[in-house]
């Protein structure tokens, strides 16, 4: 039998096949089918509950009975501006900003090496090394850092061994960043956060750098830009969406965290703890909701500013 005379039977025409016919002809129906479950989940369950909770912030708590007064008022939102509460907002945003900056500074060279120089084997090792800390328990890591940062912990011991004990003491004697020991200072808290969230910065930055075509870097050099200038004018702007994506992670994760500050730091509350305390132990759901609005507003502001500065131009 030759190829020209070969007579193949048609494939069996089953119900699934007919369904496929329908979906192929009506691409919109397929899109709809694919999107409905996640949209229901996101829209109703997730966003719905979030907005119901946030909506509480327009109510207030009756000072005497502690019950929630369900009449719209701005009193609760204005409470945020009471000095003690506004301290919490400023403190948390400042910590998140420093953590984000530190993450970006540490992550960039690592991501750059992985994206541009590492071979396939090194890259596999790199992914493993970056991801591995994410596999162990978050609490274990925090307790580990507490031990590292303790007065009689590993960092102090090493500093002493290297003759840097004096430098550590001098740092701890500084007014804002210091304290009785690293584990009860802002320095310790920022270091712990930076360690915890670093993978969330490295991975998007690395992905962004990998998408910068090698030709663009060559072109910049070809046009006369020395490496430093190439970095500033081409690589950094093109990697910026990755840095911003990473910053969204590190910034919002720091804004929302309430476990690390319980274990490491100065005992001064951050937003997450304030929400927890107001909602959980004080029963002041409206104020907790008002506090919860802060990270959302801060992130919105952050993204707006990032867009203004052209961080997304290369998208």
């Amino acid at each position: 039998m030759s190829l020209s005379t070969l007579d193949l039977p048609d494939p069996h025409d089953g119900a699934l096949r007919r369904l496929s016919d329908l979906l192929v002809r009506r691409a919109r129906l397929l899109t709809l089918l694919l999107l409905v479950p996640p949209l229901l989940w996101l829209g109703l369950v997730y966003l719905g509950s979030l907005f119901v909770f946030l909506g509480q912030s327009i109510f207030s708590i009756d000072e005497f009975s502690g019950t929630i007064v369900r009449e719209p008022t701005t009193a609760t939102l204005l409470e945020l501006f009471r000095p003690a509460n506004f301290d919490i907002v400023q403190r948390t945003v400042a910590i998140a900003a420093v953590v984000t900056l530190l993450c970006a500074i540490i992550a960039f060279p690592i991501a750059y090496y992985a994206a541009r120089y590492a071979g396939p084997r090194v890259k596999a090792g790199f992914y493993l090394a970056v991801m591995m800390p994410l596999w162990s328990s978050y609490l274990v890591k925090i307790y580990g850092w507490k031990l590292l940062l303790a007065k009689e912990g590993a960092i102090g011991w090493f500093a002493g061994r290297l003759g840097l004990g004096g430098a550590l003491e001098a740092w701890l004697a500084l007014p804002l960043v210091g304290g009785p020991s690293l584990s009860v200072s802002y320095t310790g808290m920022v270091l712990t956060f930076t360690y915890l969230w670093l993978p969330f910065m490295i991975l998007p930055v690395q992905a962004a750098l990998e998408r910068v075509p090698a030709h663009l870097i060559e072109a910049a050099g070809d046009l006369g830009a020395a490496p430093g200038l190439v970095f500033r004018t081409v690589i950094l702007p093109l990697a910026m969406p990755g840095v911003v994506a990473g910053a969204i992670f590190t910034f919002s994760l720091t804004l929302g965290d309430y476990i690390v500050p319980q274990i490491i730091g100065t005992s001064a509350l951050v937003l997450g703890q304030a929400v927890y305390m107001q909602q959980g132990t004080a029963g002041n759901v409206p104020l907790a909701a008002a506090f919860s609005l802060v990270p959302i507003l801060v992130m919105a502001l952050f993204l707006t500013l990032a867009k203004r500065t052209g961080a997304f131009d290369a998208l």
Binding site: P213, H215, L216, E218, A219, A220, L238, G310, D313, A314
Partner: peptide, 8 residues
């Protein structure tokens, strides 16, 4: 060959 124009 691919022009290598800076997209940003």
């Amino acid at each position: 060959q691919d022009y290598a124009l800076f997209p940003h």
